[in-house]
Design a protein around this nucleic acid. Structure first.
Lengths: 174, 174, 174, 174
DNA sequence: AGATAATCGAGACGGTACGTCCGGTCTTCCC
DNA sequence: GGGAAGACCGGACGTACCGTCTCGATTATCT
């Protein structure tokens, strides 16, 4: 898929490359997107995602976490794979669910706990859910990748700053 | 496309429905996604986007603008069309550019001016570009639509709050 | 085979109907036509053939014998089975041999003896072998069945008359 | 078909050899046997059949005609083709009709006229139809070819003798 | 007004891939 | 330890579209 894109990737081609009969593929997966769904579940496509650390400094924790995610997607091959996944997910709700779970899920619990502790510690003061935070960050990244804009670790600062402080800037210490 | 999705939409089907020869289509467009690109440019698919008003209250202006956008995409047919466009754009950089321009462009100038005035008026204090702001908002929406999550005007408040104040909450008056 | 014809009859279908593993079939028969060959040998398909009686009247003996054969093949199911066998035999020399033996063989010895006695009795005066006689009769029948022409006992008279007297008519008493 | 037999002859193979798309074949013929039917009609498979001459001597006319037919079918390639046609016709009534018409038809009218004249001239004395005569001769030949028995011009004499005189021999001059 | 283009609908064409069926082999597991 | 069950590789089936290519039959323009 990273070579020719999702549309050009054929089941016959997969079978041929795998030296496998076409029927064997159809025996195990209902469609091309179902293959992708399993690849995603098995971690074969999307690089395994870290969860934010907890060093006590929320900003640094989020920055490091997001930078690593952006680092992976800076590789054109990975960006191409993600575009393929998005293309497939747009036509297959099942894959969409798997993809969403894979992207948003693992970080969710950790992020929720992290935010709760940050709130307790006075670092933040918000009712926004951890899911919404993750959706904003990943949404922005996916949007840029679909638009074929550059994606790199340097994006992390702007995103995290806005996320934490908003456009009104950091007035914590003012 | 809203009926069967992007993949199932065939050029032969388009020609047949239009009572037109296939060649006539190929005479005018290079590919299926090129047809979509022109549809987008002509405003036939994406509902025409408003730009934020300027009432003096940045928060209300953004809220109203975003709510209208979310209102449109709350319609499943429109969400389906957007998924089709994303699917097509994932495989066609040209369409991706057109789509990005269509989604991000019209609001950009107005938003830039709006932010500049807000900054001058002390409403905000940020270096984030207007483009980045739009990408964050639309990225989040597109991400939710691809994930088949509900999209409705009620999302606007959370997004705008976070965008303006950050997770640290509104300390404008503190 | 009588239901769907030879081509549509699959080994998988046979195995499934017999509640038997495919391998078990391949263990005992080399091919689809080999199964048919054994069916023929076991008398499961072609109704068992009589041999001509010997009442002293060659014409009546042959007539009765041929009428019984035609009677069987007048049943469309039997005609269909025969077409299936022919179709299979056309592709498999082994089955062709079995089928030929089954059709031509049993009658051959009796017919040879019958002709010999008829010749001795002055009933006939020919050097044609019994095999050739049988081939002419069965050949005509098979030809009509393949051509989907009607086959019934009434054909017997014409065939036997021609066989005995030829086109020049019965001049036995002239 | 003469190389691999009817069953092994695939439509894909035909298309490939003809440097033609598969769909083009399906556009013009409904099935493999329909292709054969047209080949037969066009005279591409069965060598064009003569009709009996009329030299005044019925026996010689029939002998010459039958010998030529047997000559053709003595070629193993032609015999193989005929077996393929029979195999196909066994599963396809339409092809069976075409094949029957091709084999039996052209000679029919001439044969009918020939027999009528022979009868008028006292050569024969029979009510057997020309069609039945042809069926007997061709049936015998087809039967032998299906059985993979030798077929050659030398068969003609026996068949014609039996046909004209019957097993009782030629008593015309006795 | 009549000749000359240009454009169109229709759809055949050589291809590629689809998803299914079956052939013949091999493996697992149960009785 | 033989057989049912069925997975496996392979390959043909008949269908749907792809993008290219001829065909007339309108139109539109230009002598």
């Amino acid at each position: 898929m990273s070579e020719v894109g999702y549309e050009q990737m054929s089941i016959e081609g997969i079978a041929a490359r795998a030296h496998v009969g076409k029927q064997t593929i159809y025996r195990w997966w209902r469609s091309k997107s179902a293959i992708l769904a399993e690849c995603v579940l098995e971690g074969l496509i999307l690089p395994s995602q870290d969860v934010p650390e907890d060093t006590g400094d929320l900003r640094e924790d989020l920055l490091g976490w997001l930078r690593r995610a952006l680092q992976d997607l800076g590789d054109p091959a990975n960006a191409s794979l993600l575009r393929g996944l998005v293309s497939a997910a747009a036509d297959d709700p099942d894959l969409a669910a798997v993809l969403y779970e894979r992207l948003t899920g693992p970080q969710e619990a950790t992020m929720a706990e992290r935010l709760r502790r940050a709130e307790a510690g006075g670092e933040i003061d918000s009712t926004l859910t951890s899911t919404a935070v993750i959706e904003m960050l990943f949404g922005t990244i996916v949007y840029r990748i679909l638009s074929r804009l550059d994606v790199g670790p340097e994006l992390a600062d702007g995103l995290i700053d806005t996320l934490l402080n908003g456009l009104r800037g950091d007035r914590r210490n003012s």
